Simulated assay, not measured.
Amino acid sequence: MPYACAPPVVSSIASQRDADAFRVLNEEWISRLFTLQEEDRAVLGDPFGRIVGPGGDVLLARERGSRAVVGCVALLAYPDAVFELAKMAVAPTAQGRGIGRQLIAAAIGRTQALGAARLFLGTNSKLAPAIHLYEEAGFVRITRNRLPVADYYARADILMELK
């Protein structure tokens, strides 16, 4: 999908300001469509300690020029080189410009650079545009017993992994 202006730049989280943008973008959509859970609050409130420190990353899409954060995605690290693509959000005013597609591609590239053996995600059937993007990127549906974690978000009624 063509951009009306230059596509955003995707880079890793680097500051508390970045962490705040990550939290705000995710709290908006989660609160609007679901219920913000304690695990959400913990991860969103401390992305450096809960995501980056254990070996993951948070990628941010920034507008060229203003550097405003318009999208984000987290990569949570698990044992055995397993990563979870999580907490993907695009600002409502920036949706429809291909930013989600750009974030997924950047996330896949980043997990490859981190040596991932497996990349999975959980989503919800309410999020049809996101599911379509994941499928376009090569994710396929899996069953709950294929998850590398035992206790996973109840709201995730669709589970996928990159083939």
Rank of each mutant, 00 (worst) to 15 (best):
F48S: 00
R146T: 11
D157H: 01
A91G: 09
D40T: 06
R67N: 03
A74L: 08
F34P: 05
A130L: 00
A81V: 08
F48Q: 02
S15D: 13
S15Q: 10
G138A: 03
G55H: 11
A150I: 06
L76E: 06
R141H: 15
A68C: 10
F83D: 06
S12Q: 09
L162E: 00
G100E: 06
E135S: 09
L133S: 14
G109L: 04
R41I: 06
R41F: 03
L159F: 04
P79G: 15
T35F: 10
S66K: 05
A116M: 03
F22Y: 01
A81M: 10
D80W: 15
R17T: 11
A14V: 04
L159P: 00
I99T: 09
A89Q: 04
T143V: 14
I30V: 02
R146D: 14
V58C: 00
D18S: 03
G71M: 05
A89P: 03
E63Y: 01
E135W: 08
G109V: 04
A61F: 03
H132D: 13
R101S: 12
P8D: 05
T123W: 06
R110K: 12
I104H: 01
F34T: 03
T93H: 15
F139T: 02
I142W: 05
G96Y: 10
A116C: 07
T93C: 14
V69P: 00
A106H: 04
V10D: 00
F139R: 03
R17Y: 08
Q16E: 15
K126V: 14
V90L: 07
N26A: 14
C72D: 02
V24F: 09
L76V: 13
I51A: 11
D151W: 08
C5L: 09
L103V: 10
L147G: 02
M160P: 01
R67E: 04
G138E: 01
I131L: 12
A68L: 11
A128G: 13
E38V: 12
I13V: 14
L133M: 15
V149W: 08
I30H: 00
V70G: 00
R32D: 13
